[in-house]
């Protein structure tokens, strides 16, 4: 049971770092290029990447 708790927290960590990293990249691109869509794109990309990573680590047999 203790492993489950640790897994849940590491899933949380992956999702957070995905959103923060790629969202941060998108935010920086928006900031320098004066656009408005990179942030949303980066957040979605980060979310997708981190869910993919979670699937690789926890969902795969």
């Amino acid at each position: 049971m203790t492993h489950n708790e640790g897994d849940a927290w590491s899933i949380f960590g992956y999702l957070l770092s995905g959103l923060l990293f790629w969202g941060g990249v998108g935010w920086a691109a928006d900031h320098w290029l004066h656009t408005h869509f990179f942030l949303l794109g980066g957040l979605l990309l980060g979310m997708g990447a981190s869910i993919y990573l979670v699937w690789l680590r926890f969902g795969r047999e």
């Binding site: 897994d7 992956y14 999702l15 959103l19 935010w27 942030l39 957040l43 869910i51 979670v54």
Partner: peptide
């Protein structure tokens, strides 16, 4: 069941974190 439960948890949690990030941004 465990991988399915954790994937469902990840999907639900992703939406919550999405909201958190957008609330600050």
């Amino acid at each position: 069941l465990q991988p399915i439960a954790f994937l469902g948890f990840a999907l639900a949690e992703a939406l919550a974190l999405f909201g958190l990030v957008l609330a600050f941004v």
